[in-house]
Nucleic acid binder design. Structure first.
Length: 320
DNA sequence: CAAGCGTGGTC
DNA sequence: TGACCAAGCTT
């Protein structure tokens, strides 16, 4: 079958060259409609049964899931998400509480600044947007803790709109299937965005399902390590596969050291504060880490971030 | 824009 | 076992 050339949905300015000169050649050996039906069919048969994907899931429930899923695996999010929504079924419910309660409820999901930002987003929704999660991308993007990905995800998944949803899974699927490399670059490029735009179904409802379907393919089959190419619906079309699965070439991908870092100390300090419902004396915090310099730096950082509130000299608590 | 930000699991 | 990974955001 001949390779299909896909023209971007949003053409570049004419000044960039003759018409079509800047079109994105997508050497996927599949016509676009076949690509769509292949991935959508795979999704229908293989999608996980996740609670935030059910018709009963409110936009707020979808938004909470997106915050929690930022860098945290689905398995750990599932129970936390259910407990969160049980306690705070609407943005107003969360906004009515102290930010420290959000931090406490966040538990051990990691990156607790997300809890603070989710609380701040709930306050903004309640005070500035009539209590309902905004349905347009730009307004979503203006909320604390909502970046390009999360705004597109909420608009797409909760409101069934047509958006390019580029997360780490989608980027990896396109890197392999379309570009023919094992891993995408560290930062999202304009070329990636053009490719994703070119492949997005025209119909909004279809595009919304397409977005979650490609993500799911990346999460379940086209994984970072040990992809199950034998189970992949794009096996025969995949450019990386056709090239013989060449290994990643490029700069070493950044590792996340943790042992001995300020992050580890912050985690230990905050764990003490989370477990204590009142105030905490300095001595209890001093017990979590031997180095007083690093300990002080970590605590200062938590205070600067608003995750910890100094009450008086040597006494701290979660923010009220 | 590269670096910083938690926590747990995997190979 | 240490490096890498997990639906990113902010500065």
């Amino acid at each position: 079958m001949a390779a299909t050339t896909v023209t971007p949905a949003v053409p570049r300015p004419a000044a960039a060259g003759p018409a079509g000169a800047d079109s994105v050649a997508v050497p996927l050996a599949l016509p676009l409609p076949v690509l769509h039906s292949t991935v959508l069919g795979w999704y229908e048969a293989n999608a996980r049964d996740l609670p935030w994907r059910t018709p009963e899931a409110t936009p707020w429930a979808v938004m909470v899931s997106e915050f929690m899923l930022q860098q945290t695996p689905v398995k750990r999010v599932l129970p936390a998400w259910a407990a969160w929504l049980e306690r705070w079924p609407t943005p107003a419910d969360l906004a009515a509480e102290a930010p420290g309660e959000a931090v406490r409820m966040w538990g051990r999901l990691g990156y607790p600044r997300r809890a603070l930002r989710l609380h701040a987003a709930a306050v903004a929704i309640t005070e500035e947007h009539g209590g309902g999660v905004p349905d347009d991308h730009a307004t979503l993007l203006s909320l604390p803790g909502v970046g390009e990905y999360t705004a597109a995800a909420v608009a797409s998944f909760a409101f069934r709109q047509r958006h390019v949803v580029l997360d780490t899974n989608v980027r990896r699927v396109f890197a392999r299937a379309v570009t023919g490399v094992e891993y995408p670059a560290q930062a999202t490029t304009a070329a990636e965005r053009r490719t994703a735009t070119a492949l997005l179904p025209a119909d909004a409802e279809t595009a919304a399902t397409w977005a979650v379907a490609v993500m799911e393919l990346g999460a379940l089959v086209c994984t970072a390590r040990g992809p199950e190419c034998g189970d992949c619906p794009l096996f025969t079309a995949c450019v990386w596969q056709r090239a013989g699965c060449p290994p990643y070439e490029g700069p070493a991908r950044r590792g996340q050291s943790y042992e001995g870092t300020d992050r580890q100390v912050r985690g230990k300090l905050l764990a003490v504060l989370r477990a204590e419902h009142g105030t905490v004396e300095q001595a209890r915090l001093d017990a979590v880490w031997p180095d007083p310099v690093q300990r002080a730096r970590a605590l200062d950082g938590l205070v600067a971030d608003g995750l910890v509130e100094p009450v008086e000299q040597g006494v701290y608590r979660l923010p009220q």
